[in-house]
Computed example of a mutant assay.
Amino acid sequence: MTFSVNCSIMLAELPLLERPAAVKAAGFDAVEFWWPFARSVPGDAELSRFERAITDAGVQLVGLNFNAGDMPAGDRGLVSWPGRSSEFRDNIDVVAGIGGRLGCTSFNALYGNRLPGHAPEAQDDLAVQNLTAAAAAVARIGGTVLLEPVSGAPDYPLRTADDALRVIARVKEETGAANIRLLADFYHLSVNGDDVGAVIEQHAKDFGHVQIADAPGRGAPGTGQLPLADWIARSREFGYDGRIGLEYQAPAETAFEWARAVSGPASQQPASGRKDRP
């Protein structure tokens, strides 16, 4: 199966814990989530409800974010945030625990916005420490930490693939951590002006995960102008063999029409970036 569905952004009309079952009903077998709790360390009952929603639906959790703060308010991660480092460190073991119980091995650590009153160099030093701690914790369950360039957040410093790859290289050089990789979100990279084709040719073999949405609009494949099918095919050609995360905004009733328009199971079909091709 090729695709996984990000339940934190998709099927938003449904309560969060009903979305895994809806994903299964739509013909997909894997889900991803941003951090689904209000706190870095939720209670046991909250954890159990979340995990049960996934296992009862019969889908596989393949991706989970570390706590990134208040995303609707503009937060984009705790990794480089002075004053919240202990909160991030407390979250690491919770994330690894969920991964260990559900067989998830990919964990996205949003870097964090630049903050007034804090030197960028100090934030970057803190980020190296926190990414190293996260990598060590998830390594125990065979996990990988993902680092993602993001669009639409002017204070977020990682905008291109090279921005993220420089951080990854620094962590590896300074600490030896080998299980930290690039999350290549083709939507974010494209909107930020990165050369997605070149990124694929140079780095696809090192991608930790791929996510897609069309642009403009962050809609379903085929609603914009991005050559998503071509980019996916090229990623395969240049060595990426993982899932493709669906992370776009669309009404639940039409969210997977692009998949139903082609023959075969939805979760095995290519995502087209043009309306006139399957």
Rank of each mutant, 00 (worst) to 15 (best):
F238K: 10
Q60S: 12
S40D: 10
Q249A: 13
A73E: 10
T254Q: 05
G273V: 01
D230L: 06
G69D: 01
A133I: 03
G99N: 01
R277V: 15
R101G: 01
T160K: 09
G222H: 10
F33D: 02
I232W: 02
H118L: 06
E201P: 04
L110Q: 04
V171N: 03
N192Y: 02
K172I: 00
L11D: 03
Q268P: 01
E237A: 06
H188F: 06
G208T: 10
I92N: 05
Q202T: 10
T175W: 00
E247Y: 05
R89K: 09
S190N: 14
G69Y: 00
P82E: 14
I98F: 00
A250C: 01
N130P: 00
S263R: 13
Q249I: 12
T2H: 09
G58Q: 07
H209L: 03
N130Q: 13
L14E: 13
Q225W: 03
F238C: 00
A38D: 15
E173T: 12
V94T: 01
D163W: 07
N113E: 06
R101T: 02
N65C: 00
S267Y: 10
L16G: 05
D29A: 13
Q60I: 04
R260M: 08
E121T: 15
A250T: 03
A139H: 11
A119F: 05
S190V: 09
A73N: 07
K24S: 12
S80H: 01
A134M: 10
S8K: 08
L110T: 11
R39P: 00
G242F: 03
M1V: 09
R218L: 06
A177E: 15
L165Q: 13
A57H: 00
V262R: 12
G245T: 05
